[in-house]
């Protein structure tokens, strides 16, 4: 009787410790399990509408600081990653990685060509929000905020989001990778008028 209790206690303890340990490591598994390092496909042109479609595929997916890999199942597959740990390997881009992939840019800053990255390609690109804001990189320029169009961006020193659509009241619908608690989605924002934000444009759109 005592031995069966001992066995049961050991079984239960080991079961939960092993499961919990493996489960705790789960948040580092999305990139390792799902993502790839495939080369991008060069494309001869890009349209604002096409890039909006790229962005819409990421809607409802997760957010990962320094990340850039997501699927298209309308769910954050690695929710509640600790924001203090950038190496959790969770699903989603961060704001600048998301913009880089949606704008279909090259890893080489001097290269303004168009590169189609797969959703599951884990790539962030060379730009932070701050560097986008100042127009770093051959494809990127600063632009007057009042002249911004669909899929241009508004960037602060710490964040960047792309204009998905204007609203009748002067706000904008912004598509952005907002943060771990928010994921990637479309929200109404007032970035355009805020002096913390500047206008940024990817050059070379066909239409």
């Amino acid at each position: 009787m005592a031995r069966s209790h001992t066995f049961l206690a050991c079984f239960v303890t080991a079961f939960f410790l092993t499961g919990a340990g493996t489960g705790a490591a789960y948040h580092t598994q999305f990139v390792a399990t799902n993502c790839n390092t495939a080369a991008p496909t060069p494309t001869p042109y890009i349209t604002r509408s096409g890039s909006a479609t790229v962005a819409l595929r990421a809607r409802y997916e997760g957010y990962q600081w320094a990340g850039g890999c997501w699927n298209n199942n309308d769910r954050d597959d690695s929710p509640n990653d600790p924001t203090s740990d950038p190496a959790t390997g969770g699903e989603g881009g961060d704001c600048s990685g998301f913009t880089f992939k949606v704008w279909r840019e090259s890893l080489t800053e001097s290269d303004a060509s168009f590169q189609q990255w797969g959703m599951l390609r884990n790539v962030h690109g060379p730009y932070t929000a701050s560097r986008f804001k100042s127009g770093h990189g051959a494809p990127n320029i600063t632009a007057s905020k009042s002249a911004l169009l669909k899929m241009d961006a508004l960037a602060s020193e710490s964040h960047i989001g792309m204009i998905y659509a204007p609203n009748a009241d002067g706000t904008d619908q912004i598509i952005e990778a907002k943060g771990e608690a928010y994921g990637t989605n479309i929200w109404t924002r007032t970035y355009r008028g805020s002096s913390s934000y500047g206008g940024v444009r990817r050059t070379g759109w066909s239409s």
Binding site: F7, A14, T18
Partner: peptide
């Protein structure tokens, strides 16, 4: 045995 089977089951 308890630890081994528990760990295997958990994993």
């Amino acid at each position: 045995l308890g630890v081994l089977t528990g760990a295997l089951a958990g994993a």
